[in-house]
Every structure is written in structure tokens, then in C-alpha cells.
Nucleic acid binder design. Structure first.
Lengths: 186, 186
DNA sequence: TGTTAAGCGGAACCATGTTCCGTATGTTTT
DNA sequence: AAAACATACGGAACATGGTTCCGCTTAACA
């Protein structure tokens, strides 16, 4: 067994520069900013992007990993500190919606069934669905909501509702509010 | 004033062929099937497509006009024959969802804010939003739902929820059901 | 049958994603 | 310090799909 030679210094630098450039481009032009533009902004060639982040989804995941993580850990915390599980669920969904709504084009990307976005699904959903499921479960156990709601379906639906959230003639939060109200045992 | 020369016979034939080819392509490959493919299937050049249907939205509208019309006229009918306005609203939304869910990629196209889809928005929404508004209004007047729901927001939200409806891990109807339940005055 | 303009085809152009390979450079070895 | 090596780089080249444009065809009409 040989110890693998460690990553080169310039490679690490480039990866860092790419993350920074991508984050900037994403807020300026959405998560589907042209690959060339991101590469240019980072001062590297397009090949370098593909070497570090084989698919766009990999790049998106890398850029937003921190925030997704924060959202994930907020779940149990809200459950602990809220008056009821339903309140915790509602607050957590607000958090998730805030995250999506402020990321131009992310909601759109989340629902794409393009193979390249497999990674995005895998990460976002694997990380957040269990959290959502825990909240749903607690609320169901408390008898506050109907018991048969699937967390994955709910998360995807909420993601869908956040598409086009920046349009003036739409109101994603209002629609999500209806869904949350609809969950409640009447 | 001169009487404009009437449309040429071949032009009318081609338009017909294009509509037929597009309808077939749409079910086979979704509403964003490549322009070249549609032209090939219709046996015409790409230029001909653009002459008859300047934007993709124009073509989509032309293909689905009948069904949208049917959905629009169903609104008042349901209102007349249903037990309550809320029941009529629920049934009508079912109709709309059925329409969207069976059209591969239409829901996605509906929410695109691309300028080329302006026509699509204009037609679909202009035609259906008033119908929806009438149903909402009747239900609100009857005291069955909260009175401040905007029909356009609701339609857009429902459209969004229908995105990705053919994925096995999602359930658009379930999510729309939650929204409809959430509308109800608790 | 000749004249005319509507209509046609598809090559050409543009924007973007993706691949590939000759070259450059950081790292390790001698 | 120099040589040797693998890692990493850049960006030209290719693929795909939308859009435009113009020379030619042909239906309509006199």
C-alpha cells in the first residue's frame, strides 16, 4: 500500500477560487450561470472547473453545503424549543423556504430530473428529508397533523412552490402557508 | 383599400401538418422537443416553423387551445351543478391538474419567466385565472374559504406543484390536495 | 400564360455544455 | 540542484439546440 501523493497546492487554490467565483456568479446570475463565465471569473480554464466539479450539481452542493447543514441542524433545535411539534415544523419550513427563495434558480434546479442533478437531489434530500420526517413524525404523534404525509413528497412540493419566487405576481410563501395549513388535522 | 390576398393553400397545409407533428412530439418527448425534430416530423424546414409559430409558446398554445378552452368552460358548469362552491372549486382544480400532469414538461414551461413564454402565460392565465377567480369568489361568499386568496397566485402555485409529476417519488395530486384543504376556512 | 408576392428550405450563425490533449508546474527523488 | 514524474492546467475543438436569413419555388390572380 502506498500513501497517495497529496493534492497539489495550485489545485487547492483553484478549487477555492472557483467556489468563491461560483458563489458570486450564483447570486448575480443564478445557479445556471454559464460555465465559461464562472471559469473566467475565477481566472481558470473551463477544463479546471470540470476537473474539480464534474457536474454543475457538484458545484452547487459545494457552494451551499454550509447553509444546508445549518438548516438540517435547526430541525431538532426547533423541535426542542418550540411550543408544539407543529409549530416547530412550520418554523423549519419557513427556514427552508427562506433558503430556497434567496437562491436564484436553485428551486428550479432542485426539481430537474436531469441526470446531472442527481448529486443535488442526493445531497439536499438525503440531508434534509430525515429532518423533515422527524418533525412530521413528532407532529403526527402529537395528533396535530394527519399521520400519512411523506417527507420527501412534502419537501419536493415545497421546493416546487418556491420556483419563480422572485416574480412580483407570485407569492411562494403564501402557497407554502396553505400547504402547512392543509397539513393540520382539521 | 385592397382586399388582402388570401393565405396560400400550402401554407395552410403546412400549419396543419406542424400542429399534428408537434402534438405527437409533445407526448413522445415533452413540450421542449427540439425544433428540428418537429420540423422533420412535419416534413418541413425549420424556417417554416418559425414563420407559423414565432415562439415555442405559440406552438404550445395552438396545440392545447382546445383543452384549455374545455377547462375554462367547465368552471361555470361545475359551479352550477356542484353541491357547494368549494366542491366546485376542488373539482375544477382536479381538472386543471389532470390537464397539466398529462402534458410532459408543460408545467415546467408554464412557470418559465423566459420572454419567449410570455405568450404562454398570457393565454393560459388570461383564460383560466378569471374562471378560477369566479370559483374562489363564490366559495368565499359562501364563507367556505378565507376571502383573500389571489387566483393568479393560486394557479401559479398549482402549476408549480405539477412539475415533475411523473416522478415516482413525488405526488403532485397529494400536494395540491393539501393546498385545497389549506384554503378551507378552519 | 405571365407576373407577383407569399411561402419555403436549410445552410449559416450563435450560445452553451463537454471533452481532450499538449504543455506547464508542483513534488519527490537522486 | 537537477532530474524525473505525475498532477493539473488551459483552451481549442466538438456537440447540441435555438434563431436568422436569403435565394428559390410556387400558388394566386389577371
Amino acid at each position: 500500500m502506498s500513501a497517495p501523493r497529496k493534492q497539489r497546492a495550485d489545485a487547492r487554490r483553484n478549487e477555492e477560487a472557483l467556489l468563491e467565483a461560483a458563489a458570486a456568479m450564483f447570486v448575480a446570475a443564478g445557479v445556471d450561470a454559464p460555465v465559461r463565465d464562472i471559469a473566467a471569473k475565477a481566472g481558470v480554464g473551463v477544463g479546471t472547473i470540470y476537473r474539480h466539479f464534474p457536474t454543475r450539481a457538484d458545484l452547487i452542493v459545494a457552494v451551499y453545503r454550509h447553509q444546508v447543514e445549518a438548516c438540517a441542524v435547526a430541525g431538532p433545535a426547533l423541535l426542542a424549543e418550540s411550543a408544539t411539534p407543529y409549530a416547530a415544523l412550520a418554523s423549519w419550513i419557513d427556514l427552508f423556504v427562506d433558503f430556497l427563495v434567496t437562491k436564484h434558480g436553485l428551486a428550479e434546479a432542485m426539481q430537474s430530473d436531469d441526470a446531472a442533478f442527481q448529486t443535488l437531489h442526493a445531497y439536499f434530500l438525503d440531508r434534509l428529508v430525515p429532518v423533515c420526517a422527524q418533525l412530521l413524525d413528532a407532529a403526527a404523534t402529537a395528533g396535530e397533523i394527519l399521520p400519512d404525509m411523506d417527507a420527501l413528497v412534502l419537501m419536493r412540493g415545497i421546493g416546487n412552490l418556491c420556483i419563480g419566487a422572485d416574480s412580483p405576481s407570485y407569492d411562494a410563501r403564501r402557497m407554502v402557508g396553505l400547504v402547512v395549513a392543509g397539513l393540520r388535522r382539521h
